[in-house]
Design a protein around this nucleic acid. Structure first.
Lengths: 162, 162
DNA sequence: GTCAAAGATGTTATAGTATAACGGTTATTT
DNA sequence: AAATAACCGTTATACTATAACATCTTTGAC
């Protein structure tokens, strides 16, 4: 069995962040796109959270770090990161979260905990393929899937997050 | 084979609207909730569109009809209609659309055409059950599913909507 | 029927999310 | 070095949603 969908809340998150930044460099190089300092900062701030973070919360963090940015700055970075598959937007939260598998294209499914607000990314091909099949059966040409499941993660079901 | 996912754009939509309002009355009666004139108006305006409509567009339509409403009015109606399963919110559009099957609880999947902005509602149990299973396998207690697929509907693939 | 409680609506203000538009700067290519 | 494209700064504004509080209406108990 692989990694659990939700990492234990007490894992060493610095490792996640370093790994994500290293991945991002490789991906951008391969894509021929530029991971500028600003974009990298936004990506790092996203990864520093254990949960999806909103654009204006990111903005606030940048201000705290002395980077006097305006909304378009952060939205541009978010757009770039999405285009390069480095982050995902969680529609039901209006928030952004790091992608766990940026190195290959994939359709994801997200488990969104209503209590602790953490999100797990599934990458279940059976689901994405079944969705594609159903869409095609209706004559629909599928471009992008948004699959988000709200509920309670295992820890919150056990009452570990109050 | 049943109804097509996307109705032909030239069907008699007045029939859809009348049917939806009749359904709504039954559903609210069964739920013990009150379909007031205001809520009914919002539901009717939603059904008058062939595509999901935003809260502020609804507001504008109400103004055109001489009903001088403020945002909370329409949001309250939308909340009520959602609670009674009479409409769905399409997260990826920030817009609302009539539910095709309000009489029984169900998880839906939405096909969202990027060109004509129409939406088809699938109700595929195989998909919703597979999603639940995957979530549970991760120890996740599923409460609500959001499944939206963006792409092109059959008509738009044939260039019928320019 | 009256009255209390609950539910629904009106109103004002404000919070939260996102983009348009324009000008300047930096990097890349030739 | 000039031309181009990509990136960034800045201001203003559009779009989406809710808080808070007052008023009115419906319902149900007596």
């Amino acid at each position: 069995m692989g990694k659990p969908a939700f990492l234990p809340s007490q894992h060493d998150h610095q490792v996640c962040i370093r790994q994500a930044l290293a991945n991002a460099k490789v991906v951008c190089e391969r894509n021929g796109t530029r991971l500028t300092a600003q974009r990298q900062q936004v990506l790092e701030l996203i990864w520093q959270e254990h949960r999806p973070i909103g654009a204006y919360d990111l903005l606030e963090k940048m201000h705290e770090l002395g980077h006097k940015a305006a909304p378009p700055t952060v939205y541009r970075a978010l757009e770039f990161l999405q285009e390069n598959a480095l982050i995902h937007r969680i529609e039901s939260l209006n928030a952004y979260t790091g992608c766990n598998h940026p190195e290959h294209p994939h359709a994801s499914q997200f488990l969104v905990c209503q209590q602790c607000r953490r999100v797990a990314e599934l990458e279940c091909e059976a689901i994405s393929e079944q969705l594609s099949r159903q869409a095609e059966a209706a004559g629909f040409a599928c471009r992008q899937q948004t699959v988000e499941i709200s509920g309670l993660c295992a820890e919150c079901q056990r009452g570990e997050h109050g």
